[in-house]
Amino acid sequence: MTRVLVSGGTGYAGRFIVEHLLTKGYKVTVGGRAQPATGYFSTEVPFIPLVLDPDRDQIDVFDNIYYFVHAAFDHVPGRYRGGEGSDPAGFRRANLDGTMRLFEAARDAGVRRCIFLSSRAAYGPQPPGVPLGEHMYGKPNTLYGEVKLQAERGLLALCGHGFVTASLRPTGIYGEAGPGRHHKWTSLFETYLSGKGVLPRAGTEVHGNDVATAVRFMLEADALRINGETFNVSDVLTDTREILTILQRATDCPHPLPAEADKAAYNPMSCCKLEALGWRAGGIGLMHRTIEALADTTHFEMRPKSESLV
């Protein structure tokens, strides 16, 4: 049974990765700052303390570890872009310098593959409507995107025959959150269902299970096809109107929907490289089913139609 260490496994994206790998027969260990509560995962998962600190020698966490999936990220709760808060230097030190120290420790400990969960933010602004492809030069305009891009490049410099590396650039990840956690659309749903106005906004989305599947593909693909490569992980180009239309139908909510956003000007993400490995996303059908399921667990006090705010 192959042993995998998932840093940040108790996080929103990390939990999808852990659960998926468990179902596929991997022996998973979760690394993080705090041990998860009992019942957070579908089965008991070993935990090992792990921090993003460039001054800490943590090579021991990689004892008997075959693969390392790095999904940990230190940020202000609920924020990625802008997640540095009032401490950009500390944010960079943890998420870039601390990440590189872990990559180096993994290599030195004999880990065979290292997969990094990067972000769409590594691209930064690109010409309107142009699909984002991995060949494009990244020019991030946020510290979050800059740190992700630099960590990708640092990992690339470490790759070799005995240390296979790959970076994944997922877009907005949606799906059911872990016990006691909020899903990514909690605030959006509650705002709409309470009758408050919602601004139109376009975006690309991908289900957490599809991200987890992409991670597994990185672990199982021929090393020559992924070593030193970056892969987009995206699915649906949508907007707040489409998302809330599904919610509206599931809840019979009478409140008006936001205007349609300009999706033509938004940058979709090309996933041809990942699809060439056999990966397929769940599409709009999965998004519909997920929102309908989330609607059943969303708690709100719906205002009368006459009190709704446009």
Rank of each mutant, 00 (worst) to 15 (best):
F217V: 05
F217C: 05
F217A: 07
M218L: 10
M218E: 06
L219R: 00
L219Y: 00
L219E: 00
L219T: 00
E220R: 01
D222C: 01
D222Q: 08
A223F: 01
A223N: 06
L224T: 12
R225W: 02
R225T: 15
R225I: 02
I226D: 07
I226E: 04
N227T: 11
N227P: 03
N227S: 13
G228F: 10
G228D: 12
G228T: 08
E229K: 14
E229T: 00
E229M: 08
T230M: 13
T230K: 12
T230S: 12
T230I: 15
F231P: 01
F231D: 02
F231W: 05
N232C: 10
V233F: 08
V233D: 06
S234L: 07
S234H: 13
S234Y: 10
D235C: 11
D235L: 12
D235T: 10
D235E: 13
D235A: 15
L237T: 14
L237I: 10
L237F: 04
L237Q: 11
T238W: 08
T238A: 11
T238V: 13
D239P: 06
D239A: 04
D239T: 05
D239W: 03
T240K: 11
T240D: 05
R241E: 12
R241V: 06
R241K: 14
R241T: 09
R241W: 07
E242D: 15
E242H: 13
E242G: 00
I243A: 09
I243L: 15
I243H: 00
I243Y: 02
L244S: 09
L244Q: 13
L244K: 13
T245C: 14
T245I: 06
T245K: 14
I246V: 15
I246M: 14
L247F: 09
L247W: 10
L247R: 12
L247G: 12
Q248P: 02
R249V: 02
R249M: 12
A250D: 14
A250I: 11
T251R: 15
T251D: 11
D252S: 13
D252W: 06
D252E: 11
D252I: 00
D252Q: 09
C253Y: 09
C253D: 12
C253P: 05
P254F: 09
P254M: 14
H255A: 06
P256H: 02
P256E: 10
P256V: 05
P256Q: 03
L257V: 01
P258S: 07
P258G: 00
P258V: 07
P258R: 07
A259H: 05
E260N: 04
E260K: 14
E260R: 14
E260M: 07
A261K: 08
A261E: 02
D262G: 01
D262H: 01
D262W: 02
D262M: 00
K263A: 03
K263D: 03
K263N: 07
A264L: 09
A264M: 06
A265I: 00
A265G: 12
A265R: 04
A265D: 07
A265Y: 01
A265F: 00
Y266Q: 06
Y266E: 11
N267P: 06
N267D: 10
P268I: 06
M269R: 08
M269N: 02
M269T: 01
S270W: 01
S270H: 03
S270L: 13
C271Q: 01
C271S: 03
C271G: 01
C271L: 01
C271N: 04
